[in-house]
Design a protein around this nucleic acid. Structure first.
Ligand SMILES: [Mn+2]
Ligand SMILES: [Mn+2]
Ligand SMILES: [Zn+2]
Ligand SMILES: [Zn+2]
Lengths: 142, 142
DNA sequence: GGATTAATGAATTCCATTATCACTTGAAAA
DNA sequence: TTTTCAAGTGATAATGGAATTCATTAATCC
């Protein structure tokens, strides 16, 4: 099943429609998979491709996609929110270089045990987690 | 050495003065240790105690204290920044309940090994890390 | 068709934070 | 002690990302 079709199924299942703006936004996200985009990034890329979608719609759509688990909203150390496709298989986290702002991704397999111990210790049902390591990348630590 | 005196030493060492506004802000933070306060929280508490300190000064002071490692700036899932005294001994993290917004703190001793493996794998010099577990607290998961 | 509801987008508003700038403070120099 | 002057302050305005409003449009259901 195509990626777009899979998204449409999820929308329809949650009683939403795959409208043209939503499809266009999803296409931008798919075309730029691996990047971390802001709402304005997406709005600009749509405009560059000749599509006119309101910025409010971009925000609303990104929020909707987050609620449906299609997207993840990321907050690095600046004011903006960044979005990326949520790959249901390999959840990952980010190393943020304080010098050049480079973002390096890493998976969190090793953290499983730690998370479980947290759940037991505090009776807290963990549904999501956000881990950020700040520091200096190999290019900048010399 | 008193807590305030220790802070003053740090300021002076970095060529800053412990001015009246800075001392008042620090007193609020000390009086509310353990809480997570916004700039406006602090501004309001100062006003309630009869002290008039400009909101801009509160922001500037909080930023300065963060730079000096006196405070930690926390970002939960809303728009504001929260501040708490940085206890140089026991670094901790936060469990955030998605239902009642309760914040539960936990230490990160168990994460040491994982952090080291990250440093080796990516040649990334970790100087700080921020971990957030989201989910449902024991009161809300029933 | 007509009625109802969802979705859109331009514009406006919100709101936390930052910038501006005239004024104040206080420590060092004269 | 007076003068000097950089550091610090605070009222206010500006900023910018995000949310809201509301009239319009599109889709859906009798
Ligand atoms: Mn990523
Ligand atoms: Mn805390
Ligand atoms: Zn770097
Ligand atoms: Zn709760």
């Amino acid at each position: 099943m195509s990626r777009i079709k899979e998204i449409e199924n999820r929308l329809v299942h949650a009683k939403y429609k795959l409208t043209t703006p939503r499809r266009l936004i999803m296409e931008i996200l798919l075309e730029n998979e691996g990047e971390h985009l802001t709402a304005e990034d997406i709005h600009n890329r749509l405009r560059d491709k000749g599509y006119q979608v309101g910025l409010a719609t971009v925000y609303r759509t990104l929020e909707l996609f987050c609620e449906l688990g299609i997207l993840a909203r990321l907050n690095f150390e600046d004011a903006s929110s960044y979005y990326e496709l949520e790959e249901n298989d390999q959840h990952h986290h980010h190393l943020i270089c304080l010098s050049c702002s480079k973002i390096i991704e890493f998976s969190d397999e090793l953290l499983e045990d730690f998370m479980e111990s947290i759940e037991k210790k505090y009776g807290f049902e963990v549904t999501d987690h956000k881990i950020k390591y700040l520091g200096y990348c190999s290019d900048c630590s010399n």
